[in-house]
Simulated scan of single mutants.
Amino acid sequence: MTDMPHITLLPVGNPDRRALDDLAQDLGGMGFVVELARRRALPQRALDAKRGQFHADGLLGLALSARAERVLAVTDVDLYAGDLNFVFGVARPNGKACVISLFRLYLDADEERFRGRALKEAMHELGHTFGLGHCADPCCVMWFSNTLGETDRKGASYCPRCEETLRLARIRSSGLSK
Rank of each mutant, 00 (worst) to 15 (best):
T2A: 15
A66F: 13
R40K: 15
A169Q: 15
L176V: 00
L9P: 03
C98P: 07
P11S: 04
E125V: 02
K50H: 15
L79W: 06
L10C: 10
N14S: 15
C139L: 15
G133K: 05
R67E: 11
C98Y: 02
L107P: 10
L119H: 01
I100D: 07
R39G: 04
R92N: 14
M1S: 15
F114P: 14
L102I: 05
D137H: 01
N85P: 14
A122G: 12
P43R: 03
A68T: 11
G61I: 09
K120C: 11
E69A: 15
G58Q: 08
R167T: 00
P15D: 04
S145K: 11
G127Y: 08
E112F: 01
M1R: 11
A56D: 04
P5A: 05
C159A: 14
V71N: 07
L148Q: 13
F54R: 08
G29H: 01
L20A: 13
P93T: 08
D16I: 01
C98T: 03
R117Y: 06
V71H: 02
C135I: 08
V33H: 10
T165I: 11
P160D: 09
D48G: 14
L27T: 07
K96P: 06
N146W: 02
E125C: 10
L107E: 14
V34I: 03
D78A: 14
A24I: 07
R167L: 08
G52P: 03
L166R: 05
R70A: 06
F114L: 14
V74S: 13
L9C: 11
